[in-house]
């Protein structure tokens, strides 16, 4: 585990789609450094051969029968939309790069 630097934080901000000002970057870097410093206590703990726990406990896989339900009323689906065109959501032009 290494020290977090402001360039790491900037990269995380890009991944998390958060626009941070210079001040925020430096204060957040400081906070995260402190927290990660505390978290470093885990480093000393030997976890060789210990399986990871993802959930409280593992149940049998819950499954749903392949039976379609009535879809949500399209008007209701877009009722909370900040911008819409008919029953579609509207966003600034999407440039092809991912998908």
């Amino acid at each position: 585990m290494s020290r977090i630097e402001s360039k790491d934080l900037t990269r995380m901000a890009v991944l998390a789609r958060l626009a941070l000002g210079e001040d925020e970057i430096s204060s957040m870097t400081r906070d995260l450094e402190q927290i990660l410093g505390y978290v470093a206590t885990l480093e000393g703990l030997d976890t060789e051969g210990v399986p990871p726990t993802a959930q409280g406990f593992e149940l049998a896989t819950p499954l749903r029968a392949d039976v379609p339900e009535t879809p949500i009323d399209p008007e209701l689906a877009v009722a909370n939309a900040p911008a819409r065109q008919g029953t579609a959501f509207l966003v600034p032009k999407v440039l092809e790069e991912e998908g």
Partner: peptide, 25 residues
Amino acid sequence: LLGTYVLSAGYYDAYYVKAQRVRTL
């Protein structure tokens, strides 16, 4: 931001997986 860092390439095993193992303990 902390959670993004914990899952990011190069830190996932050291932080996230490690924490899941300690969770088992």
